[in-house]
Design a binder for these strands. Structure first.
Length: 823
RNA sequence: GGGCGAAUGGCGGAAUUGGUAUACGCGCUAGUCUUAGGAACUAGUGGGUUUAUCCCGUGAGAGUUCGAGUCUCUCUUCGCCCACCA
């Protein structure tokens, strides 16, 4: 047999697979059990595939090929998350239209995927920038709009001055734009939102974003991150009366000028409240301006903090604030007057935008009180007072009738008291806010809304918003635009796009010129694959029922919050509206770990340490790259690249290839090898099922090493071994398969079965321990009785000398494993 | 500050229910073959020493157990994500 030549072999089989798409395409009518194996569809960047893509796509490719061999009907599609800022930014620089660059990038990606031997069903390919696709993205927007789940509101939003666009809350990280790294400022703008907060808790039969997590087979850390992001916290709202309205009567509580409302999770500490703080945006400053003695100072502080970006606010090491002189507030429990501050460490967007400060039991308040020399009053004591202050739950003191209660009980009792006196109530707060979906950029799906002044009277709440009729979809992206960012959508300057007839009255109207966040496109694409050429619906009911939900979803952990939360939200909306029968899209989720550069750092173009998969394929072959990435370590682990390590895989494949030359049709009986082979089938099968590809490969190597020692190899056994190898290294498997005289693809074969009986060894190595330490090993029959084993053990020369003169306290026997003598 | 996870040879990593620690691969050492090798093959490869019926070894310390990488407690270090969320 000639030498293993991956280049030649791989090109040949890749061509064969393209000519035989039926191998990987699925049949909707098949009675076989379905498996939907999905990759997160990539953004087709100009950079091409990187080794991280190869890692997760190889994992799903192995799973898909494995399940097909197991006789399952496998849907394994791929597509393109094609809208987005990079293509547009590139267009601004080069004047090349994003359609062109995207088309080119997709061609590159697809060619690279072909060269890696991925078995996608390309007949279902989707492209989110294709009008046939974004027509349905727009349709989803209309569904949300019609069900009052999409709304327009003026809001303080994150604005990136460099990208000249609004960002979602999740796209502004630490006050810096996720895309370009420039600072994000706050702007008041009219924006479109999706009401994702409606779905946090269960909604009728639709499980909420919180409780729905319970039933999912997802990494625990991912679920926890989602919970943290939603940020549910149970607490209490409390009204602090403003002191010149001190004498309580009911009418005063109806006027919000007479009190400030705070939110706290620690009402039990309220007897230690020594002041209150409002956020700079809090309305109280405007409402009571005439009563404020140091109005100028306060206003100056508000101005200053308004100019601060979120980043600057967070970077500030010291808390700042100003006392609002002339206004005091009253602690409803003690009836004591406390002073009021405005400080930007209090966030306007969370809770009520005002807090009660308990410096003795809250670190932030303590810090602030230290700086401004404010009183500190302790009211909780616990077993361990850590450092300077006690922030845990404990027992109350100096707290009126609540003294001696434990924190938990005190919270319940105090909240009850507040409720009865109409001074507060129990309240659940969430960090999650509605999803801001409008973008003032070109390369996205246009929002299908038209504004008609004449029709504005029809629904005053909606200010002349007329949804584009479904039959008029898609609202096409115009091509006559200049996409240099100006702070307004480039679509606004396209006359053909912007001016339009009102679908209601036929009069002059204007189109919404914003586009949608690309995360909207990716929130539903997994439905489209089930029926990607459907012209009448985003996917047919039957096809959805047939294929969804997704059985295995693999992708990067960076999408833990954004994409995964939004996709769940969309699925829940469809469930609520009765379109589908399930309310979670991805039953099982796994993340691939990041592949670091050889130097242990993250791969980065700027560092010049990026590994290009094309070069690796060129040098070693796709099978070797695939297997090497799977062999490096557990799929989800972060692991450094090591180019030298690939030769281990190359040697292994060469060995497998070479050993095909030793095949004989003759019946060979080698019990030990047969036993090892059945162990190998079992281990590989179990490891694939649980995505432990590294140990599956090591088992293949163990068996290959054993084959290598044989004079001749049984054809039947070797063929089965090839099938075990084929999901990992499909090209070499097909090649050898053909060389063995087969005319059909190896991927039409059945996955080998193992025989548990053959796995059992006839002889075992019985370990003999004395006080837990291994002292001897004896070869014995596997079914040796306890009695015989004990006898053999004490008769062993090595053991005899160790135990001579000592008394044996007891002897422990573990069947098939060991004898442990205790002296 | 919060959440999650990790720590095993020179390196990446193995180790079903507690039961032979370091599988598999890289690297390294020696040898064989070769005109040559960053090829192939063979043997070896945790540390120590008194070189063998030996001792020590899975971040540190304690505990449970006949027996702990694995279970419990305390601590240290590192990584990732989130972070002034009251």
């Amino acid at each position: 047999m000639e030498k293993y030549n991956p280049k030649e072999i791989e090109a040949k089989w890749q061509k064969y697979w393209i000519e035989h798409p039926e191998l990987f395409a699925v049949n909707d009518d098949s009675k076989k059990e379905k498996k939907y194996i999905l990759d997160m569809f990539p953004y087709p960047s100009g950079e091409g595939l990187h080794v991280g893509h190869v890692e997760s796509y190889t994992a799903t490719d192995i799973m898909s090929r494995y399940y097909r061999l197991q006789g399952k009907n496998v849907l394994h599609p791929q597509g393109w998350d094609a809208f987005g800022l990079p293509a547009e930014n590139y267009a601004i620089k080069t004047k090349i239209h994003p359609t062109e660059t995207t088309k080119k990038a997709i061609a590159t990606f697809k060619a690279q995927m072909g060269k890696l031997g991925f078995s996608y069903d390309w007949s279902r390919e989707v492209n989110s920038s294709d009008p046939e696709y974004y027509k349905w993205t727009q349709w989803f927007f209309l569904q949300l709009y019609k069900n009052k789940l999409a709304y327009k509101a003026k809001a303080k939003v994150n604005w990136c001055e460099s990208c000249q666009t609004v960002l979602a809350n999740e796209q502004s990280e630490n006050g810096v734009c996720e895309r370009c790294g420039n600072k994000v400022i706050q702007k008041d703008l009219e924006q479109w939102f999706f009401k994702i907060t409606d779905f946090i808790e269960d909604k009728g039969k639709t499980q909420g974003l919180l409780s729905g997590l319970e039933k999912l087979d997802w990494p625990e850390s991912t679920k926890q991150t989602q919970r943290n992001w939603i940020g549910r916290s149970e607490g209490t709202t409390i009204k602090f009366l403003i002191s010149n309205s001190k004498f309580l009567n009911k009418s005063q509580l109806n006027n919000d000028k007479n009190f400030i409302e705070v939110f706290t999770t620690r009402v039990d500490t309220i007897f230690g409240c020594t002041y209150c703080v409002v956020a700079p945006e809090h309305k109280i400053v405007q409402q009571l301006a005439e009563q404020i003695l140091n109005l100028k100072e306060v206003e100056k502080y508000l101005e200053k903090s308004k100019k601060k970006s979120d980043l600057m606010r967070m970077e500030a090491k010291e808390k700042t604030g100003v006392e609002i002189k002339g206004i005091k507030v009253i602690n409803p429990f003690t009836n004591e007057e406390v002073s009021l501050f405005v400080a930007d460490y209090v966030l306007a967007q969370y809770g009520t935008g005002a807090v009660m400060a308990v410096p003795a039991h809250d670190e932030r308040d303590w810090e602030f009180a230290q700086k401004y020399k404010l009183p500190i009053k302790e009211v909780i004591e616990g077993e361990k007072k850590v450092d300077k202050i006690f922030t845990a739950d404990g027992v109350l003191f100096d707290s009126g009738k609540f003294t001696k209660m434990i924190s938990e009980k005190a919270r319940a009792e105090m909240t009850k008291w507040l409720t009865e006196n109409k001074l507060g109530s129990q309240k659940i707060n969430y960090k999650l806010r509605d999803w801001l979906v409008s973008r003032q950029r070109y390369w996205g799906a246009p929002i299908p809304i038209i504004y008609c002044e004449k029709c504005a009277h029809l629904d005053p709440a909606r200010q002349g918003e007329i949804p584009v009729p479904e039959e008029d979809l898609p609202v096409m992206l115009p091509t006559d635009v200049d996409f240099n960012p100006t702070g307004e959508s480039p679509l606004k300057k396209s006359k053909s796009f912007h001016n339009v007839k009102c679908p209601k009255c036929g009069g002059e109207a204007k189109r919404e010129s914003d586009t949608m966040d690309t995360f909207v496109c990716s929130s539903w694409y997994y439905f489209r694959y089930s029926d990607s050429r459907n012209k009448k619906a985003f996917a047919g009911k039957e096809q959805i029922k047939k294929w969804l939900p997704v059985d295995l979803y693999v992708g990067g952990a960076e999408h833990t919050v954004l994409h995964l939360l939004y996709a769940r939200f969309f699925t829940k909306v469809l469930h609520k509206l009765g379109h589908i029968k399930f309310d979670e899209p991805f039953l099982k989720l796994r993340h691939q770990g990041i592949i670091l550069a050889e130097d242990g750092n993250k791969m980065a173009k700027s560092k010049g340490n990026v590994v290009n998969p094309d070069e690796v394929v060129e040098k070693f072959g796709a099978d070797s790259l695939r297997m090497f990435e799977m062999f490096m370590g557990p799929l989800e682990d972060m692991k450094p690249w090591n180019t030298k390590g690939i030769v281990g895989i190359v040697r292994f494949l060469e060995k497998v290839y070479k050993n095909a030359g030793k095949i004989t049709d003759k019946n060979i009986t080698n019990k030990k090898l047969e036993s090892l082979f059945h162990k190998t089938i079992k281990k590989i099968t179990n490891d694939i099922e649980s995505l432990r590809f590294n140990t599956a490969i090591s088992q293949m190597m163990i068996f290959a090493n054993e084959l290598d020692k044989q004079e001749s190899i049984s054809k039947i056994q070797y063929e089965k071994y090839l099938i075990l190898l084929s999901p990992f290294a499909p090209h070499i498997a097909e090649e050898i398969w053909k060389k063995l005289g087969h005319t059909k693809s190896i991927f039409l074969e059945a996955w080998p079965k193992y025989d548990e009986k053959l796995i059992q060894d006839e002889e075992i190595e019985l370990v003999i321990q004395i006080n837990g330490k291994v002292r001897d090993k004896l070869r014995v029959s596997a079914d040796i009785t306890e009695e015989d084993a004990k006898k053999l053990a004490v008769e062993s020369e090595k053991i005899k000398s160790q135990i001579s003169g000592k008394k044996i306290k007891k002897i422990i026997f573990v069947k098939g494993k060991l004898i442990s003598i205790v002296i």
